[in-house]
Each structure stands twice: as structure tokens, then as C-alpha cells.
Design a protein around this nucleic acid. Structure first.
Length: 279
DNA sequence: AGTGCGACCTGATCGC
DNA sequence: TGCGATCAGGTCGCAC
């Protein structure tokens, strides 16, 4: 579900209300969600109870809750995970798997229909135990994601461009929606080999990655089915989408009908006129 | 190295 | 109205 702009929006919505809040009670309703270093819900609850949230950070699609102890709570929302700030006396909805009861009569609740979300509690010296987090590529909106960095990642590779963009080890945070939008913006077919991209195209790609993700954040994310921010508020970027979810509709550039195909097992939306294969 | 597939889950939607 | 097939924004591990 949430990609970089959605996770960033959740972080921004939760930070001002959660920083310096203490967790008075922690309830795990679905113990199997708790990963590394133990899948023991009681220990998880015990360590977190009484902790105060000092900061919330984002890395790729991961959220990191830094505490006033030596532990870090790491959450990945995967497809349908939500983090919601709700009054403690509000009805607990189905699929609420984790409840952090705060010291102000509010809860932070983790809700996840498909149960794919990942919850980790790690010692601050053991963050590297979370492989998916450690192996992430550069932050596309960070300073280390330079044009050179992208060129190096592409060099001598034959991979199709769509799976490349989705590979979190290469660039962190791009998911299926933004990948399609990025490719439409630069007029490249999702099955194009990245080795075929000209220098100029790589620069366009570099710009488009940053541009689409930045715009996604400005519009506070894309709400199609499940996504809302920490306050339950929908994003607006779905109104800015050009190809994702638009198959059968006219291309905003040329009017040709948008197509949907499978690339690397994922649905890909594209305009066959504006995004022809080969350079 | 690249690709393709199944696995993990529930729920919405579509075609018959 | 019902039922099965298919699809969904993510990632991992395995086989070829």
C-alpha cells in the first residue's frame, strides 16, 4: 500500500502528536506480526510499556520510532497497514492488531487487513538485524541520490526498468504507482532494458523520480483503497495520476487509450504511443 | 545476474 | 443471488 510519499505523510502527521508521548500500555492482538528479535508478544509489550517516543524517522517505506530507551520500534506497513491516532474510548475496529495506549487518552493503533505488515523491536545497536532495512538503496530525495549514483546503479545492467525501479536495494521507496507515473513522465516503456537508456534519458529519469515523489508528498499521498495518514485523512495525489489505474482511459498527452500489462508479475499501466519500447 | 513463481492474507469486484 | 476466479499499492525465498 504505502510507498515513500505515503509513509512520509504518515510520519509528518504523527510526529507532532506522538513525540514526547508515553506508552502506558501495549497490547498485541496478533503475535505473529512481531518479528526480530523475538516473536514473543509479552516481551514486546513489557519492553515498550512506559517508553516515551522521542522521534519518528522514515527510511524507504519503513517507519522508525526512536524511544527514550535503547530500543527502536520499526514498522513496515506493506500493502494495507495503517497507523491511526484515535481516542482510547473509540471502538476497536476489526483487524486492529496492535494498540499503544498513550498517556493522553489516545491510542496509536496498527490496523492491517492483510496482515502483511512487519513490526520489529530492536536494540539500537542491532538495527542491522533487520535485513530489509539495512540493504535499502539510497533515499531518492536525499543528497546521496545524485545523478552519478543513478548512473552507477544502471551501468552494465540489463534489467527491465520497471523491476529496477521497484527494487528497494537499488533505490528506496518507489512502489508500483509511482514507478508507473515516473515511466510515463519520461516516455519509457516498463520493459525497456535500463542498459538502453541514453545519458539524457537517465538524467530525465533521475529528475522524474524526485519530481513524482516530491509531488506525491506535496499532495499528501495517493488514496485509492486503503491509504490514510495517521489522522485518518486521505491524500490527494490520486487526482494527479496520469496512468496508474487508468487503463482504458485516454492518455493525457496524446489521447490514445492507456493499456495495462504485466511486467515482472506486477501490473503496469502505460500509454503505448508515448512509451514505445526501444530508444 | 536476471526472471518467474509461490508464499504470506483478506476483501472487493467481475463474469457467469 | 451465488460462486469461483482474479486482483490489490510489498517483499522474500527459491528454482531455473
Amino acid at each position: 500500500m504505502p510507498e515513500l510519499p505515503e509513509v512520509e505523510t504518515i510520519k509528518r502527521s504523527l510526529t507532532p502528536i506522538l513525540v514526547n508521548r508515553k506508552m502506558e500500555e501495549v497490547t498485541v492482538n496478533l503475535p505473529k506480526l512481531i518479528k526480530i528479535p523475538f516473536s514473543d508478544a509479552k516481551t514486546f509489550e513489557h519492553i515498550l510499556t512506559g517508553s516515551t517516543i522521542k522521534d519518528i524517522k522514515r527510511r524507504g517505506k519503513y517507519l522508525l520510532f526512536h524511544l527514550d530507551s535503547d530500543w527502536i520500534l520499526v514498522i513496515h506497513l506493506r500493502m494495507t497497514g495503517r497507523l491511526l491516532y484515535l481516542k482510547t474510548d473509540e471502538k476497536i475496529e476489526k483487524h486492529t492488531h496492535l494498540i499503544f495506549t498513550l498517556d493522553n487518552d489516545y491510542d496509536l493503533r496498527f490496523h492491517d487487513v492483510r496482515q502483511f505488515g512487519l513490526i520489529y523491536l530492536v536494540h539500537k545497536d542491532k538495527l542491522s538485524d533487520i535485513k530489509g532495512l539495512t540493504l535499502l538503496g539510497p533515499e531518492p530525495l536525499g543528497l546521496d541520490f545524485s545523478l552519478e549514483c543513478l548512473k552507477n546503479a544502471i551501468k552494465n545492467k540489463k534489467q527491465k526498468i520497471k523491476p529496477f525501479l521497484l527494487d528497494q536495494h537499488r533505490i528506496a521507496g518507489i512502489g508500483n504507482i509511482y514507478a508507473d507515473e515516473i515511466l510515463f513522465q519520461i516516455g519509457v516503456h516498463p520493459e525497456e532494458s535500463i542498459g538502453n537508456l541514453s545519458e539524457a534519458k537517465i538524467e530525465e529519469l533521475w529528475f522524474a523520480i524526485k519530481d513524482r515523489l516530491t509531488k506525491g508528498i506535496e499532495f499528501r499521498g495517493t488514496s485509492i483503497k486503503d491509504y490514510v495518514d495517521g489522522l485518518g485523512k486521505s491524500g490527494m495525489f490520486q487526482n494527479e495520476l496520469r496512468v496508474y489505474g487508468k487503463s482504458g482511459e485516454p492518455c493525457p498527452n496524446c489521447g490514445h487509450l492507456i493499456e495495462r500489462i504485466k511486467v515482472g508479475g506486477r501490473s503496469s499501466n502505460l500509454c503505448p504511443m508515448c512509451q514505445k519500447k526501444r530508444e
